[in-house]
């Protein structure tokens, strides 16, 4: 535990002494803020769309009303997930690649700590940074809550954040795994992004949801499960899906570190 904490603390502080954390958090907030603003108040934003819908509904005298706070949260959390897809690889690409390049990996692996402690320390440092990254988006939700009518669906907001955190943990574990396979940060970053994007869109490759393959691909899509959370549903299947994917990536990272001893010339 002490060793995990030592790795965790060093890792987290190194994010903040290098510009990388500030750049990633800054860019994340700028993009998600812009998307939130224009997606909500812009010329083709949700508010305008809702107005038009209500106008049409009034003229034709049919159709129910829309839960505006709900769709705003859903849209916002969708943006946050998409921007995460682009930003997390930049956070994780250095994880092991840079340690290997600098030769500090050799130091860690000749220290009286286990590979598992290294893996966990790094993973939780990444997850903490990710939590700090998404935390400021709460402000948008609180802003919506202030003007919300009908009353703000807090439950949906919290379940969405749980989903976002679980999604983030998959991305971080995946990113660190890829980073452990190479000495090049660029390869680690691009590789992580490519694989994450593939998992994101995998359900698009599904021939149809009727077939077995279709169902499997549907199940493997990381964004498909996320949508459950943004509808306020905390589905055990989805939680298990994210947790098991994270654990799988961490386990493979552990194997990758072990194999370093055998591979090294």
């Amino acid at each position: 535990m002490r060793n995990i904490l030592a790795i965790y603390r060093r890792e987290l502080s190194s994010y903040f002494v290098s510009p990388i954390a500030y750049i990633v958090i800054g860019v994340f907030l700028a993009i998600s803020g812009l998307l939130f603003y224009f997606g909500t108040f812009g010329a083709r934003g949700l508010i305008t769309q809702v107005m038009q819908y209500r106008m049409q509904a009034m003229q034709s005298g049919s159709g129910g009303d829309i839960d505006v706070p709900f769709i705003i949260i859903q849209q916002l959390m969708g943006f946050a997930a998409t921007v995460s897809l682009f930003m997390v690889p930049m956070l994780t690409m250095g994880g092991y690649a840079e340690e290997r390049k600098r030769g500090t990996m050799e130091m860690l692996m000749t220290s009286p700590i286990t590979e598992l402690q290294i893996v966990l320390g790094k993973f939780f440092a990444g997850l903490t940074l990710y939590a700090l990254l998404i935390a400021p988006t709460l402000v948008y939700n609180l802003y919506v809550a202030k003007f919300s009518d009908p009353s703000f669906p807090w439950r949906i907001m919290w379940s969405s954040y749980l989903g976002l955190l679980l999604l983030g943990s998959v991305l971080i574990a995946l990113g660190l795994l890829i980073s452990s396979l190479t000495e090049s940060q660029i390869i680690a970053g691009v590789g992580t992004f490519a694989i994450a994007l593939f998992l994101w869109l995998i359900n698009a490759f599904a021939p149809s949801t009727g077939t077995i393959i279709g169902q499997v691909l549907q199940y493997l899509s990381v964004i498909q499960h996320y949508e459950e959370f943004t509808r306020g549903v905390i589905d055990t299947t989805s939680v298990i899906f994210y947790v098991s994917l994270t654990v799988l990536c961490l386990f493979l990272t552990l194997q990758s570190l072990n194999s370093m001893r055998w591979r090294r010339a």
Partner: peptide, 14 residues
């Protein structure tokens, strides 16, 4: 064991 590899294992930002 204390070990100094060929290139010192340093974290330059610390």
């Amino acid at each position: 064991i204390g070990y100094l590899p060929e290139t010192p294992p340093l974290y330059p930002e610390m």
